[in-house]
């Protein structure tokens, strides 16, 4: 059974998806307001760019126009759809559904768990994992000197086996937590700067990697 909380989230996602699609649609040509130039308008009817009539009608030139429109739209809509955009590209496993707790509760002080409580928990938890996904998939976010990101070796966090930590990692000469291995990967294959254990990016990376292994039993120490 789909939970109301998840449904709500999914609906939100779909509506955001739709608006993003509309906003970022194909450029349309409209009548020129000034002589010598053509105004090209994005399908949101707001974003425009002026193009010289003499501009060569090449694919490359066309792409420049489209790039310019997109850049403007993104600047005008900062962060509007980052969760949806990330989830669309990299499906992130959703957190445990807690809706069965709605209406329950053991203390009169706080009363019963509400639909809204569950939704907040769910949304915030998911967002952390989704942010982890953006870091995981971005060599820039990771600060890589060699344009390498985690997903290049670990698509959807495959073979990251977070359930096996802590374990003795011979090549580190010590017992490693998941974050130690993440940092090793950041320093060596990714060639970036290691993150502090409480760095928001480190926390989010852990969240994403653990999220993708939902349901796998813990098996610390496994080689």
């Amino acid at each position: 059974m789909k939970t109301p909380a998840l449904l709500a989230l999914a609906l939100l996602a779909v509506s955001m998806h739709a608006s993003a699609q509309d906003a970022a649609g194909t450029p349309q040509q409209s009548p020129a307001p000034a002589s010598g130039t053509t105004q090209v308008k994005l399908c949101d009817n707001k974003t425009t760019v002026q193009v010289s009539k003499d501009a060569p009608k090449t694919r490359e030139e066309g792409q420049k126009i489209s790039d310019s429109l997109m850049a403007q739209w993104k600047a005008a809509n900062p962060g509007k759809d980052w969760v949806q955009a990330e989830v669309e590209a990299h499906q992130v496993v959703t957190p445990e559904d807690n809706s069965k707790l709605v209406g329950t509760g053991q203390s009169s002080t706080y009363g019963a768990v509400t639909q809204q409580d569950v939704q907040v928990w769910n949304n915030e938890t998911y967002k952390m994992a989704v942010y982890g996904s953006t870091v995981f998939h971005s060599s820039d976010e990771l600060g890589s000197d060699i344009a390498v990101s985690c997903d290049m070796c670990h698509p959807r966090a495959a073979n990251t086996h977070p359930e096996t930590y802590p374990k003795f990692q011979p090549q580190l000469g010590r017992v490693a937590l998941l974050r130690d291995m993440i940092n090793w990967c950041i320093e060596h294959p990714v060639r970036g700067k290691v993150l502090a254990p409480d760095d928001p990016k480190m926390r989010a990376l852990e969240a994403y990697i653990l999220a993708q292994r939902k349901g796998v039993p813990l098996d610390y120490g496994k080689r």
Binding site: T26, Q63, M70, A89, H90, D151, P155, R156
Partner: peptide, 17 residues
């Protein structure tokens, strides 16, 4: 409305859906 770079980047992600 993807730029060539965005298109390439999307395809370059193995797990990009």
């Amino acid at each position: 409305g993807m730029s060539p770079a965005e298109r390439m980047h999307t395809v370059a992600g193995l797990d990009n859906a």
